[in-house]
Design a protein around this nucleic acid. Structure first.
Length: 432
RNA sequence: GGAGAGGUACCGAAGUGGUCGUAACGGGGCGGUCUCGAAAACCGCUGUACGGGCAACUGUACCGAGGGUUCGAAUCCCUCCCUCUCCGCCA
């Protein structure tokens, strides 16, 4: 959540930033609740002080009747105020949590997806001498994607992926872990983008796929209505991205400053209810309830948070262009970056069957919006504890990137080539 | 799933209703004395959050979490979470 002190000191700014994100927040009401809450807390503290004094005076001997009476009276008073406080605190927190993170200066102001700004593209959409097929058509024909049987077993928006497509997925996983584990490549990307960062490699992580309510809520990523599955019996949630179990990993911890930035590449199956997307993307494997994803997560000092964000974007571009896929880099506007984000970039990849660039990656810079609730801090050189900054970014969402490969690398006879960079990870196989 | 043990500060660990949550003791860390320097020894310091104050400072809360009993709770009661050991089951 946002820093309440910032709201107190910059109410107009917060109102403006919220509006630009299309979020309605009653800042006046929030400040009123904040004041009310603090007033109650002061009263409570004063009574507690008195209670402590009475108890202290009675300490060690039989309390006098007068002390007993006073103590009981204070206790009643306290209980009442504490009750009031509980309600006030709840209302206050509820409202505070609706305040979005403030967008950075260079985020384009916009009111819909149409205001996102494409700032760069790479590669050229392939020209086919035939009508290109969709990944679903090719995948089905080659026996790589079976959604019919999956529907029988699990319902719509599930798929069996099979055969060489599975080999291709694990080739991608190996490729990414190998690239991100290479400090020389990290150093090169840092230099190419004029960043001032150390070249710590990314540590691969297989995180838990389920998590409890408390950390999920603190991460500001829980979307119970539309996205997140709940395992009711055990009071656990199925993660919707490895990011959710990565960003929460250090909850309640103080990270040693000289170990920052901590960079991770997590691999996890992700689960999404897709409750808000009826009828959208029903063909193929672009939007399933379950897909595997490689996700980068970085914990850094506040000073280097933005540069880490730029590094992650550079890595995304490197990964997509390594696969030889045509892509666009898009600066997301205030409306589209999402509530916890200060800045967001999407990578869109070309899908020949749709003649469209579709979102395959996103990079999110959250500043301290997550870590305030998660209580992830570091001790700065001046001895002060400060909230670390978090960044997350897709390395590859496997379903979507497999689909993009199938479509962009397809040939006349209904097969497709393995992107050259993945061939070594496929044991030399060049065609599927 | 069954049985048992336990969760106290940076770490280990004592504390079972009232002079102290900076919470014995030990270790670590920081500062100092000593030294050419270091080690050892000795002395001192060593949490977080929120509130009030220009500040010095000060109040409150925190002994896994949440409730309760009490004038007063780390200590008693209830619920929950987590860790460890053994048995069972299992990839």
């Amino acid at each position: 959540m946002i820093d309440v002190n910032f709201v107190r000191e910059n109410p107009e700014l917060v109102a403006k930033g919220s509006m630009q994100k299309g979020v309605k927040v009653d800042i006046d009401k929030l400040l009123k609740l904040d004041q009310q809450r603090r007033d109650l807390l002061n009263q409570i503290d004063a009574i507690r002080q008195e209670r402590n004094q009475v108890a202290q005076a009675a300490s060690g001997k039989k309390p006098e009747a007068e002390q007993l009476a006073k103590g009981q009276q204070l206790k009643t008073q306290l209980a009442q105020l504490e009750n009031e406080f509980k309600t006030a605190d709840k209302d206050y927190l509820e409202l505070l949590r609706t305040v979005p993170n403030m967008p950075l200066e260079d985020v384009p102001v916009g009111s819909s997806e149409d205001d996102n700004v494409v700032y760069k593209s790479g590669g050229t959409p392939p020209q086919f001498a035939f009508t290109p097929l969709s990944h679903q058509e090719i995948g089905e024909k080659l026996g790589l994607i079976d959604k019919v049987r999956a529907a029988k077993i699990a319902g719509s928006r599930f798929a069996y992926l099979k055969g060489d497509l599975v080999r291709l997925q694990f080739a991608i996983v190996s490729f990414v872990i190998s690239e991100l584990g290479n400090p020389e490549l990290i150093a090169k990307l840092i230099a190419d983008n004029h960043l001032n960062l150390p070249n710590h490699p990314f540590v691969p992580v297989l995180p838990p796929a389920l998590l409890k309510t408390a950390p999920y809520e603190a991460s500001a990523r829980l979307n119970a209505e539309e996205t997140t599955y709940k395992v009711e019996q055990d009071d656990l949630w199925l993660n919707a991205s490895a990011e959710h179990t990565l960003c929460t990993m250090f909850m309640d911890e103080v990270l040693p400053k000289d170990e920052l930035p901590l960079r991770f590449i997590g691999y996890s199956t992700s689960f999404r209810r897709e409750a808000g997307s009826y009828g959208k993307d029903f063909e193929g494997i672009l939007r399933l309830h379950q897909f595997d994803k490689l996700e980068m997560e970085v914990f850094s000092t506040p000073e280097s948070g933005l540069e880490e964000h730029r590094l992650l974007v550079a890595i995304q571009e490197h990964l997509v262009s390594s696969l030889g896929l045509p892509y666009q880099m898009m600066n997301k506007c205030t409306f589209d970056i999402g509530k916890p984000n200060a800045r967001g970039v999407d990578v869109n990849t070309w899908f020949p069957s749709q003649q469209l660039y579709r979102e395959t990656h996103s990079a999110d810079y959250l500043t301290d919006y997550q870590t305030r609730d998660l209580k992830i801090r570091t001790r700065m050189d001046n001895g002060k504890l400060e909230l670390v900054h978090t960044n997350d970014a897709t390395a590859f969402a496997l379903g979507r990137i497999l689909a993009a490969i199938i479509e962009n690398y397809q040939d006349q006879d209904g097969h497709f080539s393995v992107p050259p960079v993945l061939v070594p990870f496929m044991g030399g196989q060049v065609k599927i």
